[in-house]
Amino acid sequence: MTPLIDVIFLLLLFFMLTSTFSTFGEIELSSAARGTSAQNTDIERAFVQLGATRVVLNGAQTTLDDLASELRKGQVLVSLDADTTAQRLVDLLVRLRGRDGLTVTVLE
């Protein structure tokens, strides 16, 4: 019986040391509804191409920090390159999060 308890404690110690107890940040994603009509056609739109190493805003090369300062309100359409990682997209969304009047749409 005693060796079994030792093995259980060793397994418990192993799983406690190998697991992570950190919480992950959440980013709210909403899908666009089909068939909705545009109520305000005066919306400023910005087109962002996001790659693993590049960020292009309306055809001009920029950085994530400069992009966040340039976009104040309107609609941002984000196109992802094939080499874009999920972390890179999350970095962009975190910089643009919480701004009033700014909506971000990630294109497929």
Rank of each mutant, 00 (worst) to 15 (best):
E70I: 10
L102S: 03
M1T: 05
M1Y: 02
T63V: 11
T36I: 14
L17M: 12
A52M: 07
R88L: 07
Q75T: 14
Q87Y: 03
R97C: 02
E26W: 02
L89D: 01
N58L: 07
L11T: 06
E28F: 04
G25E: 12
T53C: 13
R34F: 08
L12K: 01
E70T: 15
G35E: 13
G25A: 10
A46W: 07
T62F: 12
R54P: 00
D100E: 07
L102N: 03
L102Q: 03
V48K: 09
L71R: 11
G98T: 06
I43Y: 01
L89R: 03
A60W: 04
L17E: 07
R34S: 12
L71V: 15
N58P: 06
S30W: 07
N58Q: 08
L80I: 04
I5C: 00
D100F: 00
V106H: 05
G101M: 04
E28Y: 08
V7M: 05
L71K: 12
V94E: 11
A86N: 11
S19L: 13
L77F: 11
L67M: 12
G51E: 08
A82K: 13
G35F: 10
R34H: 09
R45P: 00
A82L: 11
L4W: 01
A32D: 14
D65G: 04
T85D: 09
G101R: 04
L17T: 12
A33E: 15
T62I: 13
L12E: 05
L11F: 10
L71N: 10
L57E: 09
A82I: 11
R95A: 12
A68R: 05
V48N: 09
Q61H: 13
D66I: 01
Q75Y: 03
G51H: 04
F15K: 06
L12A: 13
G74L: 09
E70R: 15
A82S: 14
V78G: 03
L64T: 10
A68V: 07
V78M: 08
L77D: 08
E44M: 07
L64I: 14
T85Q: 07
R97P: 01
L11E: 03
L50F: 03
D42Q: 14
F15E: 09
N40M: 01
V48I: 15
F9Y: 02
L13V: 09
V56K: 05
A46H: 15
M1R: 01
D6E: 06
V90P: 00
V7P: 00
R54E: 14
N40I: 06
M1G: 07
Q75D: 12
G74Y: 04
G74D: 10
K73Y: 08
V76T: 13
G74N: 08
L92Q: 05
L80C: 06
D83N: 11
L71T: 10
L92E: 06
V90F: 04
S79N: 11
A86G: 10
L80W: 05
D81G: 05
L50W: 01
V90G: 00
L57W: 09
T63C: 10
L80D: 03
L13Q: 05
L13S: 13
R99D: 02
F9D: 03
T36W: 05
T36D: 12
L92V: 07
S37N: 15
E26D: 10
S19T: 12
S30N: 15
L107P: 00
